[in-house]
Design a protein around this nucleic acid. Structure first.
Lengths: 142, 142
DNA sequence: CTACATGCAAACCGTTTGCACCCTA
DNA sequence: TAGGGTGCAAACGGTTTGCATGTAG
């Protein structure tokens, strides 16, 4: 995956791009701004600019935005990043990675029908982990 | 699916419950409050109370909350409601229902492993619809 | 040179929280 | 009648937007 050639290569966008490239996990906008500031030679990238860069990347189909029930913050990753799905406990919010993907391992790039170009997908399984089930049973039968 | 017996049956909660029961599609908290106010005999239910009722229902595992890339507002539905998955255009936000479910038709109620109780799952396919692809090609090659 | 990107601040808006009063069990 | 639920208002926090300035092409 490379920086889209029809987008202006500005300092901010290149920095955001670099941070996403270096990260093995999806990041929030805030985390990206944080990392940009940590490098701290130069001046970092303002949060709104991070959002605008991410928006441009998403439109260009090179970045995926994901919203989990887990948190109100969106997660961003390069589209190429191997995708993962999680089982999320609705009580303690712990996340366990799922083995495999229900769509199979051909990653993205199938079509729903001939008209819809698929960029990616989100799969989340939610429920309750063992520990929380125990706790909740105790509390509720009082 | 019936009203959990370990939750107090208050006017607000019963109203929210009734609205969810009557709806064939998932609703936002605001829509629920709206519908409660529309009935307009009585006084309706405050938005914060709707949220608190939904939170209680969700903890009780009788309501699912879903977040789509589509909108910042969460959608709520009774857990029993037959589930649907959508292909969502990242540009125009149109939604097309997917045929079937990648997890198969046994609905919820499988386990990820023996420790995690599954309540439900979210599957979203995102990409670009035919119309938007055309429009974007025109705009970007200027 | 000029259209687009950025820094910065302020608005936005869905959701959460605090508190006094109300009402279910 | 006690403890949880509700109305209401105010805070919260992630994201978006407006505007003057900067800068890539």
């Amino acid at each position: 995956m490379s920086f889209p050639d029809f987008l202006r290569k500005t300092k901010s966008r290149l920095k955001v791009w670099e941070i996403l490239s270096d990260s093995k996990t999806p990041l929030t906008a805030r985390q990206i701004a944080q990392k940009a500031a940590d490098g701290e030679k130069e001046k970092g990238v303002w949060l709104s600019s991070v959002y605008r860069a991410l928006e441009a990347f998403e439109k260009a189909q090179v970045v995926n935005r994901t919203l989990l029930k887990d948190s109100p913050e969106a997660l961003y990753s390069l589209s190429e990043t191997g995708h993962h799905h999680y089982a999320i406990c609705m009580n303690c919010k712990s996340r366990t990675e799922l083995e495999g993907c229900p769509f199979g391992e051909h990653d993205h790039l199938h079509t729903v029908d001939e008209d819809f170009m698929v960029v990616g997908h989100v799969v989340e399984v939610f429920g309750y982990c063992k520990d929380c089930r125990k706790k909740m049973q105790k509390n509720e039968k009082k």
